[in-house]
Nucleic acid binder design. Structure first.
Lengths: 348, 348
DNA sequence: ACCTAGCATGAGATCGATTTCATAATCCCT
DNA sequence: AGGGATTATGAAATCGATCTCATGCTAGGT
């Protein structure tokens, strides 16, 4: 391959000048610059980024780890990350951790090996490798979290107000006349699950219905939603509304209801979370909380870059706006007052 | 940060020996090795991969570009890639090209800059940068294609028999008594679309029904499926079966049918392609072609590694097995013989 | 006891681009 | 015309790990 040396020789300048043409062109005289650029063209030279990184200690890369890349929620977030990273001149190194701690550590190790300038992790576990970096460098550590916010980590983060969103959902279900409401949680150890649960419980308490709130656990997958729903259908009294902490679980719940011949939304209301693309195409179209997925991704990049550029004294927690999207999967509950079956509009 | 130099000094050995402990431990005496490893532990040293790459001209990374990362089909393929890459000791640099040529070129350029050892592209366009590499290095060029196979590119590739799969689908629709069948294609310029179209047309010809085969074009997205379906519903005669070249378009078609009050599968049969996870959860569950998505991903990595290791003289085209999965979105057509409404079993 | 083969180790070159520092060339002002 | 400032360029050091080659050492064979 051609190196900067070849370019320099061919253009009759020193390596230093040739290199400057590419990285600090304003330092080079116009005529020289053009001559060098012509040679670059002719020889088809492109800079060896490895060598450049070694010297500059910048790689221009960021690592992003996701618990599950085939989860449509995450793939939207990643897309936002990708986009913002590219705009800022960074490439994305993607890691699917499959929710395994060991893989999370592996990717975190890459930061130490200088394979990337920073890392965004979308799970909720802080790999021990990163914890050590954080100890050492405090809020200057190039580490950002997305989606799940745990203040005690001391890491910048972008997310929505999960507790608030869950409160809204519950409140609207109660307003529609539901009393026996069930939750299908995500993994128990995730702060995201915890926050939503707290919000939901607060709503139940505010209505004096905390005693009737029942709970099952899933892992955000369609299949786990179906399983949880079947367990809930066996309960007495059977819940008239199920609030799932992911759209995929909600879709599993609807499928389970269909199998069990429980009409949705007439006999069972279902609410999801995320507003993945499929949410509007299932039957019935899903009422859900819309998370600004791409925005969350973009924001994490923004936070990371702020750290990399040295402007960031303390961890930032960015709360992005969510919105309750009303579609057709929620109907009136048994305690609805005749007149108000509630809103059923679809705003984009 | 600590370097190999610090380790060497602390352990009382030369840099060479310290480095050997980490990359060629069998060359170092047991006692020395243990002593060095102890120091590595104590100092929390981890190798600077940039420096190592510069010297070895290996990065241990592969680039993977996808037209759309939020497409569930691709995210499954990527997962397979990720998995196989990790097993082989490679990290994955993921690029979402959003179907834009410019972004494809950008990622391809990274290969030239030595940011990765090889590239797997899942789209169908060969970036010109790669074409140039291919010209120069022939089948030794570390480039592999996934999903879409274009023999003329001279690039190794992993994919299914798209024409054969499409033939099967059409054949089964005709066997079920359908005569007016419509296709919803993917992007026109993609060989994948072309291959499936060829297979479908061959089936139509074999039945003497090529004159009744109608065609619309989509872009694999749910929304494009809905649009295409609405156009098809306006035709006379209205097709009794629609074969979409992606599950997402099939889901869009089912949604359109619901809006138009056309019962599926009684009045309209729908077939998809890919067997994404959602396919079994929509209503009615979707008949489709199952592609071995993770396997395709794994295979591309395997092919790439074969090239990187220098064992590969000519481009390889790996055809992986697909399977027609019968669910409930296909019903008997108007020309069905009374007895045979066909199979409706669901094998996993 | 001597020789050879093989093992363990270190010195130093190397990968390719960047950057510091010094020098040469040019410019502008008094 | 002279001097200080400014601009353009080159020589050489540098980033950190690896690898070649040379050397010293040990073991085993005769």
């Amino acid at each position: 391959m051609t190196t900067i040396r070849d370019v320099a020789t061919a253009a009759g300048v020193s390596r230093a000048t040739a290199a400057r043409v590419l990285s600090n062109p304003e330092l080079v005289a116009e005529t020289t610059r053009l001559r060098v650029l012509e040679v670059v063209q002719r020889l088809g030279y492109s800079r060896n980024s490895v060598a450049a990184s070694l010297r500059t200690t910048r790689t221009g890369r960021i690592i992003v780890t996701v618990p599950d890349i085939s989860n449509p929620f995450f793939s939207r977030v990643i897309r936002g990350v990708e986009e913002a990273a590219q705009e800022a001149g960074y490439a994305v190194l993607l890691g699917d951790t499959r929710n395994e701690r060991e893989r999370e550590e592996q990717y975190a190790e890459m930061l130490n090996r200088r394979e990337a300038d920073g890392i965004i992790f979308l799970g909720h576990r802080l790999p021990t490798t990163l914890a050590r970096v954080l100890d050492r460098d405090g809020s200057r550590a190039p580490i950002v979290n997305g989606c799940e916010f745990t203040p005690s980590l001391g890491v910048s983060s972008a997310h929505i107000d999960n507790a608030g969103a869950a409160y809204e959902v519950m409140d609207s279900l109660y307003a529609m006349g539901h009393r026996d409401v069930a939750l299908v949680l995500g993994p128990q150890d995730s702060p995201l699950t915890r926050d939503r649960l707290i919000g939901a419980q607060r709503a139940a308490e505010d209505r004096g219905l905390i005693g009737r709130l029942v709970v099952e656990t899933g892992d955000f997958s369609v299949e786990s939603g179906r399983r949880a729903a079947n367990l809930l259908f066996a309960r007495t009294p059977r819940p008239t509304a199920i609030f799932c902490f992911s759209d995929e679980m909600a879709i599993g719940t609807i499928a389970a209801a269909r199998s069990a011949q429980i009409a949705c939304p007439e006999a069972l209301s279902v609410v999801g979370f995320d507003d993945i693309q499929m949410a509007r195409y299932v039957d019935p179209p899903l009422t859900t909380i819309r998370q600004p997925m791409a925005e969350i991704g973009r924001k994490t990049v923004e936070l990371l870059i702020a750290i990399l550029q040295g402007r960031q004294s303390a961890p930032v927690s960015a709360t992005l706006p969510h919105r309750l999207i009303i579609r057709q999967s929620v109907g009136a509950g048994p305690f609805a007052r005749a007149a108000s079956t509630g809103p059923t509009d679809e705003r984009s």
